[in-house]
Amino acid sequence: MSIAPAKILASLSINGSVVECAFNPNKTLLEVLREDVGLTGTKHGCEMGHCGACTVIVDDLPVLSCLTLAVESIGHEIRTIEGVARDGVLHPVQRALAESGGAQCGYCTPGIIMSAVALLEQNPAPTREDVAQGLSGNLCRCTGYTKIIEAVENASAELRSAR
């Protein structure tokens, strides 16, 4: 029994697959991803749009999933941290972060990676300032951002040289 409104059945396009799921229409995309789809890689640090931990990519743009209703995402392409590595191969941003020690507690990391991936897709050759700007909505309490920014710069160089 629950006082929540009746669930709706919807198809969401997540990480290239269509996922059919039932959820309460008042739920945020963050809640549906974590609770109804089982994709717990997306984190939360505030659920108020302040910290960036819940960042996912919707139609190529970084979006705070805690401020997005899941119903708004129907018909859009959603990408989460679970869809960043392809066929077991890490995205250069992931690899650079792992190798540089840019993930300490790792709790901000999924959100940071989603912001960074979106940034590099929009701007393949960002300056250090562009990277800092692109990540300024993602709070990290562990690293001081230094290694994160370096990792994104390294990943961007790697992506460009692979092109």
Partner: peptide
């Protein structure tokens, strides 16, 4: 633990 943290 870097790998588990960068993949969610």
């Amino acid at each position: 633990d870097a790998w588990s943290k960068v993949t969610g």
